[in-house]
Design a binder for these strands. Structure first.
Ligand SMILES: [Zn+2]
Ligand SMILES: [Zn+2]
Ligand SMILES: [Zn+2]
Ligand SMILES: [Zn+2]
Lengths: 160, 160
DNA sequence: AGAGGCAATGTTATCTTGTAACAAAATTGG
DNA sequence: CCAATTTTGTTACAAGATAACATTGCCTCT
Protein backbone atom coordinates (compact mmCIF):
# COMPACT_ATOMS: atom_id res chain seq x y z
CA UNK A 1 0.00 0.00 0.00
CA UNK A 2 3.11 2.10 0.15
CA UNK A 3 2.78 4.15 -3.00
CA UNK A 4 -1.03 4.28 -2.98
CA UNK A 5 -1.10 7.51 -1.06
CA UNK A 6 -4.09 8.96 -2.88
CA UNK A 7 -2.44 10.62 -5.86
CA UNK A 8 -4.05 13.25 -8.04
CA UNK A 9 -7.74 12.86 -7.33
CA UNK A 10 -8.54 13.90 -10.89
CA UNK A 11 -5.90 11.84 -12.63
CA UNK A 12 -8.61 10.35 -14.83
CA UNK A 13 -8.69 13.65 -16.64
CA UNK A 14 -4.97 13.75 -17.36
CA UNK A 15 -2.47 11.52 -19.07
CA UNK A 16 -1.11 9.15 -16.49
CA UNK A 17 0.56 5.79 -16.26
CA UNK A 18 -2.55 3.82 -16.76
CA UNK A 19 -0.86 0.44 -16.54
CA UNK A 20 -0.36 1.23 -12.89
CA UNK A 21 -4.06 1.86 -12.43
CA UNK A 22 -4.76 -1.53 -13.90
CA UNK A 23 -2.14 -3.55 -12.10
CA UNK A 24 -2.70 -1.84 -8.77
CA UNK A 25 -6.43 -2.31 -8.94
CA UNK A 26 -6.14 -5.92 -10.00
CA UNK A 27 -3.75 -6.64 -7.17
CA UNK A 28 -6.11 -4.97 -4.74
CA UNK A 29 -9.00 -7.00 -6.10
CA UNK A 30 -7.04 -10.19 -5.56
CA UNK A 31 -6.35 -9.25 -1.97
CA UNK A 32 -9.92 -8.26 -1.29
CA UNK A 33 -11.32 -11.46 -2.71
CA UNK A 34 -8.74 -13.61 -1.00
CA UNK A 35 -9.41 -12.09 2.39
CA UNK A 36 -13.19 -12.25 2.07
CA UNK A 37 -13.37 -15.67 0.50
CA UNK A 38 -15.02 -14.32 -2.62
CA UNK A 39 -14.09 -16.07 -5.81
CA UNK A 40 -12.62 -13.93 -8.55
CA UNK A 41 -13.45 -16.38 -11.31
CA UNK A 42 -12.16 -16.01 -14.87
CA UNK A 43 -15.15 -14.11 -16.22
CA UNK A 44 -15.29 -11.84 -13.18
CA UNK A 45 -11.60 -11.15 -13.40
CA UNK A 46 -11.79 -10.48 -17.11
CA UNK A 47 -14.72 -8.11 -16.70
CA UNK A 48 -12.77 -6.19 -14.10
CA UNK A 49 -9.80 -6.01 -16.45
CA UNK A 50 -12.03 -4.80 -19.27
CA UNK A 51 -13.44 -2.05 -17.07
CA UNK A 52 -10.00 -1.08 -15.87
CA UNK A 53 -8.51 -1.00 -19.33
CA UNK A 54 -11.32 1.13 -20.64
CA UNK A 55 -10.87 3.42 -17.67
CA UNK A 56 -14.25 4.87 -18.44
CA UNK A 57 -17.82 3.85 -17.84
CA UNK A 58 -19.04 0.97 -19.94
CA UNK A 59 -22.57 -0.28 -20.41
CA UNK A 60 -23.31 -3.88 -19.57
CA UNK A 61 -23.76 -4.65 -23.24
CA UNK A 62 -20.45 -3.03 -24.11
CA UNK A 63 -18.80 -5.36 -21.65
CA UNK A 64 -20.79 -8.26 -23.00
CA UNK A 65 -19.58 -7.45 -26.50
CA UNK A 66 -16.01 -7.71 -25.31
CA UNK A 67 -16.69 -10.98 -23.57
CA UNK A 68 -18.31 -12.32 -26.70
CA UNK A 69 -15.27 -11.44 -28.81
CA UNK A 70 -13.19 -13.46 -26.43
CA UNK A 71 -15.54 -16.40 -26.34
CA UNK A 72 -16.43 -15.85 -22.71
CA UNK A 73 -20.15 -15.52 -23.17
CA UNK A 74 -22.76 -13.70 -25.18
CA UNK A 75 -25.90 -13.68 -23.06
CA UNK A 76 -26.88 -10.71 -20.89
CA UNK A 77 -26.85 -12.53 -17.55
CA UNK A 78 -23.19 -13.32 -18.04
CA UNK A 79 -22.30 -9.65 -18.02
CA UNK A 80 -24.83 -8.61 -15.42
CA UNK A 81 -23.78 -11.32 -13.01
CA UNK A 82 -20.11 -10.48 -13.25
CA UNK A 83 -20.82 -6.77 -12.92
CA UNK A 84 -23.08 -7.44 -9.96
CA UNK A 85 -20.34 -9.36 -8.25
CA UNK A 86 -17.84 -6.56 -8.80
CA UNK A 87 -20.21 -3.92 -7.54
CA UNK A 88 -21.18 -6.00 -4.50
CA UNK A 89 -17.56 -6.35 -3.57
CA UNK A 90 -16.70 -2.73 -4.14
CA UNK A 91 -14.47 -3.47 -7.12
CA UNK A 92 -16.65 -1.51 -9.50
CA UNK A 93 -19.34 1.12 -9.25
CA UNK A 94 -22.51 1.74 -11.13
CA UNK A 95 -22.95 5.22 -12.57
CA UNK A 96 -26.68 5.74 -12.37
CA UNK A 97 -26.87 8.67 -14.74
CA UNK A 98 -25.17 6.66 -17.44
CA UNK A 99 -26.56 3.19 -16.80
CA UNK A 100 -22.96 2.16 -16.87
CA UNK A 101 -20.22 0.65 -14.78
CA UNK A 102 -16.71 1.73 -13.96
CA UNK A 103 -13.89 0.01 -12.13
CA UNK A 104 -13.06 1.38 -8.72
CA UNK A 105 -9.48 2.63 -8.83
CA UNK A 106 -8.89 2.17 -5.10
CA UNK A 107 -11.17 -0.55 -3.83
CA UNK A 108 -9.29 -0.96 -0.60
CA UNK A 109 -10.12 2.52 0.62
CA UNK A 110 -13.49 1.31 1.75
CA UNK A 111 -16.32 3.07 3.38
CA UNK A 112 -15.16 5.73 0.98
CA UNK A 113 -18.14 7.84 0.14
CA UNK A 114 -17.62 7.70 -3.56
CA UNK A 115 -18.68 10.55 -5.80
CA UNK A 116 -18.28 10.77 -9.53
CA UNK A 117 -17.41 13.67 -11.76
CA UNK A 118 -18.78 13.08 -15.21
CA UNK A 119 -17.45 15.22 -18.04
CA UNK A 120 -20.13 15.69 -20.67
CA UNK A 121 -17.47 16.78 -23.14
CA UNK A 122 -15.11 13.84 -23.24
CA UNK A 123 -17.11 11.27 -21.30
CA UNK A 124 -14.38 10.79 -18.75
CA UNK A 125 -15.47 9.96 -15.24
CA UNK A 126 -13.36 10.55 -12.14
CA UNK A 127 -14.08 8.96 -8.82
CA UNK A 128 -13.45 11.24 -5.87
CA UNK A 129 -14.10 10.99 -2.19
CA UNK A 130 -16.84 13.17 -0.84
CA UNK A 131 -18.58 13.14 2.47
CA UNK A 132 -22.24 13.78 2.15
CA UNK A 133 -23.48 16.98 3.73
CA UNK A 134 -25.59 16.67 6.84
CA UNK A 135 -29.01 15.48 5.96
CA UNK A 136 -32.07 15.92 8.14
CA UNK A 137 -32.19 13.44 10.99
CA UNK A 138 -34.76 10.73 11.21
CA UNK A 139 -33.49 8.84 8.21
CA UNK A 140 -30.89 6.12 8.35
CA UNK A 141 -28.77 6.38 5.23
CA UNK A 142 -27.35 3.11 3.98
CA UNK A 143 -26.05 3.91 0.52
CA UNK A 144 -25.55 7.09 -1.40
CA UNK A 145 -25.31 8.05 -5.02
CA UNK A 146 -23.43 11.26 -5.71
CA UNK A 147 -22.80 12.15 -9.31
CA UNK A 148 -21.88 15.52 -10.75
CA UNK A 149 -22.08 16.24 -14.44
CA UNK A 150 -20.13 19.08 -15.93
CA UNK A 151 -16.98 19.90 -17.83
CA UNK A 152 -13.45 18.91 -17.02
CA UNK A 153 -10.69 21.50 -17.24
CA UNK A 154 -9.55 20.45 -20.71
CA UNK A 155 -13.06 20.47 -22.13
CA UNK A 156 -13.77 23.82 -20.51
CA UNK A 157 -10.75 25.25 -22.32
CA UNK A 158 -11.78 23.78 -25.63
CA UNK A 159 -15.27 25.23 -25.26
CA UNK A 160 -13.97 28.72 -24.47
CA UNK B 1 -45.28 32.82 -0.69
CA UNK B 2 -46.25 33.68 2.86
CA UNK B 3 -46.89 30.26 4.30
CA UNK B 4 -44.28 28.44 2.23
CA UNK B 5 -41.60 28.83 4.83
CA UNK B 6 -40.03 25.46 4.27
CA UNK B 7 -42.01 23.25 6.61
CA UNK B 8 -40.93 19.84 7.89
CA UNK B 9 -38.22 18.81 5.43
CA UNK B 10 -39.25 15.18 5.88
CA UNK B 11 -43.00 15.67 5.72
CA UNK B 12 -43.17 13.06 2.99
CA UNK B 13 -42.58 10.47 5.70
CA UNK B 14 -45.42 11.66 7.91
CA UNK B 15 -49.14 12.17 7.53
CA UNK B 16 -49.71 15.70 6.33
CA UNK B 17 -52.26 17.78 4.53
CA UNK B 18 -51.38 16.55 1.14
CA UNK B 19 -54.00 18.59 -0.68
CA UNK B 20 -51.84 21.56 0.20
CA UNK B 21 -48.84 19.94 -1.40
CA UNK B 22 -50.81 19.48 -4.58
CA UNK B 23 -52.48 22.86 -4.76
CA UNK B 24 -49.37 24.77 -3.74
CA UNK B 25 -47.22 22.98 -6.26
CA UNK B 26 -49.76 23.41 -9.05
CA UNK B 27 -50.03 27.10 -8.30
CA UNK B 28 -46.28 27.41 -8.32
CA UNK B 29 -46.12 25.56 -11.64
CA UNK B 30 -48.62 27.98 -13.14
CA UNK B 31 -46.57 30.94 -12.01
CA UNK B 32 -43.34 29.46 -13.26
CA UNK B 33 -44.74 28.66 -16.67
CA UNK B 34 -46.51 31.97 -16.98
CA UNK B 35 -43.41 33.93 -16.17
CA UNK B 36 -41.16 31.92 -18.45
CA UNK B 37 -43.55 31.66 -21.35
CA UNK B 38 -43.60 27.88 -21.15
CA UNK B 39 -46.90 26.27 -22.00
CA UNK B 40 -48.42 24.06 -19.37
CA UNK B 41 -50.61 22.17 -21.80
CA UNK B 42 -53.34 19.77 -20.69
CA UNK B 43 -51.22 16.64 -20.85
CA UNK B 44 -48.29 18.32 -19.12
CA UNK B 45 -50.55 19.70 -16.42
CA UNK B 46 -52.24 16.37 -15.93
CA UNK B 47 -48.94 14.53 -15.65
CA UNK B 48 -47.81 16.97 -13.00
CA UNK B 49 -51.07 16.42 -11.11
CA UNK B 50 -50.63 12.66 -11.36
CA UNK B 51 -47.13 12.89 -9.95
CA UNK B 52 -48.25 15.22 -7.18
CA UNK B 53 -51.20 13.08 -6.21
CA UNK B 54 -49.08 9.97 -6.07
CA UNK B 55 -46.57 11.86 -3.96
CA UNK B 56 -44.10 9.11 -4.70
CA UNK B 57 -41.85 8.26 -7.59
CA UNK B 58 -43.62 6.90 -10.62
CA UNK B 59 -42.13 5.23 -13.65
CA UNK B 60 -42.86 6.72 -17.05
CA UNK B 61 -45.04 3.75 -17.87
CA UNK B 62 -47.01 4.12 -14.64
CA UNK B 63 -47.77 7.66 -15.67
CA UNK B 64 -48.59 6.53 -19.16
CA UNK B 65 -51.05 3.99 -17.75
CA UNK B 66 -52.85 6.76 -15.95
CA UNK B 67 -52.94 8.91 -19.06
CA UNK B 68 -54.31 6.00 -21.04
CA UNK B 69 -57.15 5.45 -18.54
CA UNK B 70 -58.10 9.05 -19.05
CA UNK B 71 -57.88 8.94 -22.82
CA UNK B 72 -54.93 11.29 -22.91
CA UNK B 73 -52.53 9.02 -24.76
CA UNK B 74 -51.13 5.53 -24.72
CA UNK B 75 -47.78 5.73 -26.50
CA UNK B 76 -44.48 6.09 -24.65
CA UNK B 77 -43.45 9.42 -26.19
CA UNK B 78 -46.55 11.04 -24.74
CA UNK B 79 -45.38 10.31 -21.23
CA UNK B 80 -41.70 10.89 -21.86
CA UNK B 81 -42.31 14.23 -23.52
CA UNK B 82 -44.49 15.52 -20.74
CA UNK B 83 -42.06 14.27 -18.10
CA UNK B 84 -39.17 15.80 -19.99
CA UNK B 85 -40.92 19.14 -20.02
CA UNK B 86 -41.59 19.00 -16.29
CA UNK B 87 -38.01 18.04 -15.50
CA UNK B 88 -36.60 20.72 -17.81
CA UNK B 89 -38.65 23.33 -16.03
CA UNK B 90 -37.82 22.12 -12.55
CA UNK B 91 -41.36 20.99 -11.84
CA UNK B 92 -40.36 17.36 -11.44
CA UNK B 93 -37.20 15.41 -10.84
CA UNK B 94 -35.88 12.17 -12.10
CA UNK B 95 -34.75 9.67 -9.48
CA UNK B 96 -31.91 7.87 -11.19
CA UNK B 97 -31.74 4.91 -8.87
CA UNK B 98 -35.39 4.15 -9.49
CA UNK B 99 -35.76 5.13 -13.14
CA UNK B 100 -38.68 7.13 -11.92
CA UNK B 101 -40.00 10.65 -11.64
CA UNK B 102 -41.36 12.65 -8.74
CA UNK B 103 -42.99 16.06 -8.57
CA UNK B 104 -40.94 18.79 -7.01
CA UNK B 105 -42.78 20.02 -3.92
CA UNK B 106 -41.25 23.49 -4.01
CA UNK B 107 -40.29 24.30 -7.59
CA UNK B 108 -39.87 27.98 -6.90
CA UNK B 109 -36.94 27.47 -4.55
CA UNK B 110 -34.55 27.35 -7.45
CA UNK B 111 -30.89 26.66 -7.57
CA UNK B 112 -31.76 24.39 -4.70
CA UNK B 113 -29.37 21.51 -4.75
CA UNK B 114 -31.93 18.79 -4.49
CA UNK B 115 -31.15 15.55 -2.72
CA UNK B 116 -33.46 12.62 -2.28
CA UNK B 117 -33.94 10.27 0.64
CA UNK B 118 -35.30 6.99 -0.60
CA UNK B 119 -36.78 4.61 1.98
CA UNK B 120 -36.29 1.04 0.86
CA UNK B 121 -38.97 -0.06 3.31
CA UNK B 122 -41.99 1.92 2.26
CA UNK B 123 -40.78 3.39 -1.02
CA UNK B 124 -41.35 6.93 0.12
CA UNK B 125 -39.00 9.55 -1.25
CA UNK B 126 -38.35 12.89 0.41
CA UNK B 127 -36.71 15.78 -1.36
CA UNK B 128 -34.37 17.76 0.82
CA UNK B 129 -31.94 20.56 0.21
CA UNK B 130 -28.29 19.66 0.39
CA UNK B 131 -25.27 21.56 -0.66
CA UNK B 132 -22.67 19.39 -2.21
CA UNK B 133 -19.41 19.12 -0.32
CA UNK B 134 -16.42 20.77 -1.86
CA UNK B 135 -15.18 18.75 -4.76
CA UNK B 136 -11.68 18.94 -6.17
CA UNK B 137 -11.15 22.01 -8.31
CA UNK B 138 -10.61 21.82 -12.01
CA UNK B 139 -14.06 20.57 -12.77
CA UNK B 140 -17.02 22.77 -13.51
CA UNK B 141 -20.10 21.14 -12.03
CA UNK B 142 -23.32 21.82 -13.87
CA UNK B 143 -25.79 19.36 -12.46
CA UNK B 144 -25.72 17.00 -9.54
CA UNK B 145 -27.48 13.84 -8.59
CA UNK B 146 -27.62 13.12 -4.88
CA UNK B 147 -29.68 10.19 -3.76
CA UNK B 148 -29.50 8.38 -0.43
CA UNK B 149 -31.14 5.05 0.12
CA UNK B 150 -31.96 3.84 3.59
CA UNK B 151 -34.78 3.52 6.08
CA UNK B 152 -37.13 6.21 7.30
CA UNK B 153 -37.86 6.51 11.00
CA UNK B 154 -41.11 4.56 10.82
CA UNK B 155 -39.58 1.71 8.85
CA UNK B 156 -36.58 1.62 11.17
CA UNK B 157 -38.95 1.10 14.10
CA UNK B 158 -40.87 -1.62 12.34
CA UNK B 159 -37.64 -3.42 11.52
CA UNK B 160 -36.41 -3.31 15.11
C1' DA C 1 -58.81 36.46 -43.36
C1' DG C 2 -54.69 34.12 -45.19
C1' DA C 3 -50.00 32.47 -45.14
C1' DG C 4 -45.90 31.09 -42.98
C1' DG C 5 -43.28 29.51 -39.02
C1' DC C 6 -42.81 27.08 -34.83
C1' DA C 7 -44.33 24.31 -31.03
C1' DA C 8 -46.79 20.43 -29.65
C1' DT C 9 -48.99 16.04 -30.51
C1' DG C 10 -49.86 11.50 -32.77
C1' DT C 11 -47.89 7.26 -34.29
C1' DT C 12 -44.84 3.58 -35.76
C1' DA C 13 -41.19 1.10 -35.00
C1' DT C 14 -37.16 0.04 -32.82
C1' DC C 15 -33.52 0.20 -29.47
C1' DT C 16 -31.38 -0.26 -24.99
C1' DT C 17 -31.24 -2.02 -20.48
C1' DG C 18 -32.20 -5.48 -17.19
C1' DT C 19 -34.37 -10.04 -15.04
C1' DA C 20 -36.96 -14.30 -13.96
C1' DA C 21 -36.51 -18.93 -14.15
C1' DC C 22 -34.52 -23.20 -14.57
C1' DA C 23 -31.01 -26.65 -16.11
C1' DA C 24 -26.22 -28.04 -16.02
C1' DA C 25 -21.70 -27.90 -14.30
C1' DA C 26 -18.15 -26.90 -11.00
C1' DT C 27 -16.50 -26.11 -6.25
C1' DT C 28 -16.41 -26.81 -1.49
C1' DG C 29 -16.50 -29.27 2.74
C1' DG C 30 -17.62 -33.51 5.05
C1' DC D 1 -17.06 -39.95 -2.90
C1' DC D 2 -21.39 -37.53 -1.51
C1' DA D 3 -24.19 -33.78 -0.62
C1' DA D 4 -24.69 -28.84 -0.34
C1' DT D 5 -23.72 -24.61 -2.33
C1' DT D 6 -22.14 -21.64 -5.79
C1' DT D 7 -21.38 -20.57 -10.35
C1' DT D 8 -22.41 -20.90 -15.14
C1' DG D 9 -25.37 -21.67 -19.41
C1' DT D 10 -29.53 -20.56 -21.78
C1' DT D 11 -34.20 -19.21 -22.91
C1' DA D 12 -37.34 -16.12 -22.93
C1' DC D 13 -39.14 -11.74 -21.53
C1' DA D 14 -39.91 -7.41 -19.04
C1' DA D 15 -38.96 -2.65 -18.55
C1' DG D 16 -37.23 1.64 -19.94
C1' DA D 17 -36.36 4.94 -23.61
C1' DT D 18 -35.85 7.21 -28.20
C1' DA D 19 -35.55 8.12 -33.42
C1' DA D 20 -38.10 9.57 -37.04
C1' DC D 21 -41.72 11.47 -39.41
C1' DA D 22 -46.60 12.93 -40.19
C1' DT D 23 -50.13 15.91 -38.40
C1' DT D 24 -52.26 19.31 -35.88
C1' DG D 25 -52.71 23.51 -33.41
C1' DC D 26 -51.08 28.20 -32.19
C1' DC D 27 -49.20 32.71 -32.95
C1' DT D 28 -47.69 36.53 -35.76
C1' DC D 29 -47.33 39.30 -39.57
C1' DT D 30 -49.35 41.17 -43.62
ZN1 LIG E 1 -14.30 3.36 -5.41
ZN1 LIG F 1 -13.71 16.45 -20.55
ZN1 LIG G 1 -47.44 16.01 0.36
ZN1 LIG H 1 -40.12 3.93 5.16
Amino acid sequence: MAHEKNPDPLREFHPHNHDHCVSDAMAAAERICASSGARLTPVRRRVLEILLEGHRPMGAYDVLGRLDEEGLGDKPPVAYRALGFLVDHGLAHRIERLNAFIACPHPEAEGHGAAFLICRGCGTVAEVTATLPDLPEGFRVERTTVEAEGLCAACTEKAA
